[in-house]
Design a protein around this nucleic acid. Structure first.
Length: 474
RNA sequence: GGCGGGGUAGCCAAGUGGUAAGGCAGGGCUCUGCAAAAGCCUCAUCCGUCGGUUCGAUUCCGACCCUCGCCUCCA
């Protein structure tokens, strides 16, 4: 089924067709984190969205080359280095490691290339030189190099591809306050920031003098170096459309004269408890904060994946609790399926003639429509209900169960929810469970119920099933 | 002020010119000694408001109200 995606560039849903003439490989770039702090739940929405895009492309049969940068030089980082009296590398390494750990915890596929801005200074400088040579960039009196939007437009280029811009209508008050550099025009942006005393040791030599790269140029330089001057997909949060992405287009197309990116995709914003996240409102969560509250990373992933990526998502702790329950329902079904069909699974998976189940068909249809994840979950839960009914009346053969498992695994290759890791039952808990069973058999229900309560207090739920007891960690 | 999203059951959230997926919570039931974060069933005469087009609109058009975001570092 052809994959359709919304392209910010054309403001329409388009059938995806890669630049690769063989139609197989896809180059995908996602703006990564600026490593000055732990990533928060809003950041994670974007990265989980990017992971969904990548997995959906792979599900559709493409071979994806996924690049995500690390911005490891920038104002807030320099401030952090100064305040912590440390080095740039030491400061950023801590947050970079934490970010990659969290990314893994959320079961996001690791990008194939993770370039750091500080390792691409040479590429950045040469890109700026190209722009200077073409007359689109200029060195100002303060020693910084700026991109001239007027000159760029003068070459027949379009500044404002991702959204409509009207500089005359932009709010006057803020224009003045933002005009703190020696730029020729307010809209011009820095490509190279001249060294200032506050930068400390953070500077590099360049033909324009000592300094450091501007934020926008980093992504242009890294993405083109790794994926080529024109590539397929560029993702990011919607707040990056302007100025970041617009400037990337301007710098890249201004330097190469070629179209930069074919499809731009933007993930919508995330609110927490209906409000924009902020530390003062107490609604600012990192992944670590949520894990500390007893939630699992896969529950967070599930919740972030319940809503359509193009719409604002309201993240709430109640919602997360609901996500936990919903996920438990899927886990229960898959685990029962595994009991029945495990042995037949390899045979079923090896059999190429097994036709796709309605689960896979409905799921693919939903994903193909610009990643309609809500409809995709709808298909999953309908399948769960049907499967549970069959499991309950024993009408599912081992082969049929295995076929269902195989279908689930295919679907989960996109969802990335995985299975709940079975927690090892501690001997103490097991002993209590056995004592309860003994009391039950002796018809001492008072005692057996007391033990059940005790187990619950210790965080374990015990269930009686036709096949015996079942212990579950809360 | 400019530009762009939204307003669908208690909450979250799809969708369609022909009468509303799914999840959570709630209610009922089943297995059970009793239970269960076990399973099944049920749960919007109605899709912000008011007009218009239509045989028919939640879905198209217009106006209005509310809300969120971007325009400045920001996922």
């Amino acid at each position: 089924m052809a994959l359709k995606l919304f392209n910010t560039l054309t403001r329409s849903v388009q059938e995806f067709a890669p630049l690769d003439p063989t139609g197989k490989t896809v180059g995908m770039y996602c703006c990564g984190p600026t490593v000055y702090d732990f990533a928060h739940i809003g950041n994670w929405r974007t990265f989980v969205f990017a992971d969904l895009v990548r997995r959906s492309l792979e599900f559709s049969g493409y071979s994806v080359r996924h690049v995500m940068n690390i911005t490891d030089v920038e104002d807030k980082i320099i401030k952090g280095v100064r305040e912590n009296k440390t080095t740039l590398r030491e400061f950023t390494a801590k947050f970079e490691t934490a970010f990659l750990d969290d990314l893994k915890a959320l079961n996001c596929q690791t990008p194939h290339v993770i370039p750091r801005a500080t390792e691409y200074i040479a590429e950045i400088i040469s890109l700026i030189e190209k722009l200077v040579a073409r007359g689109i960039a200029y060195k100002a009196a303060d020693g910084s190099v700026y991109f001239s939007i007027t000159k760029y437009q003068g070459c027949g280029c379009n500044y404002g591809q991702l959204l409509k811009l009207n500089f005359d209508e932009m709010r006057a008050g803020e224009r003045v306050s933002s005009d703190e550099y020696e730029k020729e025009s307010v809209a011009d942006f820095a490509l190279w920031k001249a060294r200032v005393p506050g930068d400390g040791d953070v500077f590099w030599p360049s033909p324009f003098g000592e300094g450091r790269p501007g934020w926008h140029i980093e992504c242009s330089a890294m993405s083109m170096k790794v994926l080529g001057e024109s590539f397929d997909l560029h993702l990011g949060g919607e707040d990056l459309k302007f100025p970041h992405h617009e400037d990337e287009i301007a710098q890249s197309e201004g330097a190469t004269g070629k179209p930069f990116v074919k499809y731009w995709m933007h993930g919508a914003f995330l609110l927490v408890e209906g409000k924009k996240m902020s530390k003062s409102l107490g609604n600012y969560f990192t992944l670590r904060d949520l894990l500390a509250k007893g939630f699992a990373a896969r529950e967070v992933r599930y919740l972030l994946l319940t809503a359509y990526y193009r719409e604002t998502f309201n993240f709430t702790l109640d919602g997360l609790a609901g996500a936990k329950s919903a996920l438990a329902r899927i886990d229960e079904c898959v685990s029962k399926l595994r009991e029945v069909g495990r042995d037949a699974l390899p045979r079923v998976q090896a059999d190429q003639h097994v036709s796709p189940t309605s689960l896979v068909e409905q799921f693919s249809a939903a994903i193909s429509e610009d990643l309609n994840i809500s409809a995709a979950w709808g298909a999953v839960f309908e399948w769960v209900r049907e499967t549970n009914t069959k499991l309950a009346n024993n009408s599912l053969s081992a082969t049929a169960a295995a076929a269902n498992l195989a279908a689930w695994e295919k679907v989960d290759s996109v969802l990335g929810i995985g299975v709940k890791t079975e927690t090892e039952v501690p001997p103490e808990i097991l002993a209590l469970a056995e004592a309860r069973t003994a009391a039950k058999q002796a018809k001492d229900f008072k005692k057996s119920d007391a033990i059940r309560d005790e187990l619950k207090a210790k965080g374990w739920v015990i269930e009686d099933t036709p096949k015996g007891i079942k212990l579950k960690k809360l």
